[in-house]
């Protein structure tokens, strides 16, 4: 079962006029895995999901979802998948119960199935006793869980989640991921897009999308360790903004950005084996007049790799070949 493929995408392409939103993308998602789909806004994540859910047709390429060609037979696929968007897409002027009843009806659940699933969703979303409440009165965390419940009322084998945690507070986000783990434990394949890098590490495998193309696919560990050859230096300084401005124009610094309260810099021509890079950078910064507490090499985080890959892509695009 685990070796089976849930999604198989080959050379999938979608163009809107002159703009290529998704450019010959290939990837596979195994059954039962949590597949993280990352990328900045406008990189083509949502367009990819819309093609995989059969909402829009690609211009070329193929997408096989749960063994069915989603381009040729979207109706066969639609019954077996679930989808939850960042808008939570509930009918706000309908009650909790009416929302569930609607989606259960759409998927043609029997009354027994509906009763069972309804009980499960109300329990899961912590909405027992609030069935008759209007959805618009629920706060964000509850709406999010109800939306998840509505999207899974027909027990889909594969669930697409498009930025399901955007706008939700960190506690609710953690609770939500617990629910996603529960689903995964029951064998549901999850395809999740997010721009929260901490959430990326919750996934079994990741794909990075940038400007319509996939620039990296792998497990979080593979991505952290194999995709980056250069050293990442973590800088602790008093004047973070000043140091960042200096780093951005300094020679030999490929990338510099904020990482929490600290700064991360990627130094050009400094392979991981070399330990002097940190000392040299600290000396340069102090010579430039900054008060530096420490500069030390760190293991790249997923965010580091992401920034690195994006920067490299952008540089390559700008250099005429």
């Amino acid at each position: 079962m685990t070796n089976q493929v849930a999604i198989s995408v080959r050379a999938l392409t979608k163009r809107f006029g002159d703009f290529t939103a998704v450019d010959a993308v290939d990837f596979d998602v195994k059954r039962g895995e949590i597949f993280g789909f990352l990328g900045p806004n406008g990189s083509g994540k949502t367009t990819t999901i819309r093609m995989l859910t059969g909402t829009i047709a690609p211009n070329s390429g193929s997408a096989v979802v749960l063994g069915d060609d989603v381009v040729a037979t979207p109706e066969r696929v639609k019954r077996r998948i679930g989808y939850m968007s960042q808008k939570f897409s509930l009918f706000e002027d309908m009650t909790v119960d009416e929302n569930l009843r609607f989606y259960a009806g759409v998927y043609d659940l029997t009354p027994e199935q509906f009763e069972r699933q309804r009980a499960y969703v109300l329990e899961m979303a912590d909405l027992v006793g609030r069935e008759r409440e209007l959805t618009s009165n629920l706060s964000v965390g509850w709406k999010q869980r109800l939306a998840l419940g509505a999207a899974t009322i027909h027990e889909p084998e594969l669930l697409f989640l498009d930025e399901p945690t955007s706008g939700v507070d960190p506690t609710a986000r953690r609770q939500f991921w617990d629910l996603l783990y529960d689903l995964a434990a029951r064998g549901v394949t999850l395809f999740v897009t997010t721009h929260y890098m901490d959430e990326a590490s919750h996934c079994h495998r990741l794909a990075f999308m940038y400007r319509g193309r996939l620039i990296a696919v792998g497990t979080p560990d593979e991505i952290r360790h194999n995709r980056m050859r250069e050293r990442v230096l973590e800088i602790e300084a008093d004047d973070v903004d000043g140091v960042l401005a200096w780093l951005e124009s300094a020679e030999g610094i490929r990338e510099a950005y904020l990482s929490g309260a600290l700064l991360h810099a990627v130094v050009a021509n400094a392979p991981k084996e070399e330990g002097h890079a940190a000392d040299r950078l600290a000396a340069r910064l102090r010579a430039a007049g900054f008060a530096i507490s420490s500069v030390r090499p760190v293991d790249p985080t997923i965010e580091d790799v992401f920034v690195h890959l994006v920067t490299r892509e952008r540089d390559e695009a700008e250099v005429p070949s």
């Binding site: 059969g54 909402t55 639609k78 019954r79 968007s85 897409s89």
Partner: peptide, 13 residues
């Protein structure tokens, strides 16, 4: 606006 249109077309509707 509310995204329910998008949601409905992912279902068999």
């Amino acid at each position: 606006e509310r995204g329910t249109l998008e949601q409905m077309f992912v279902t068999p509707i």
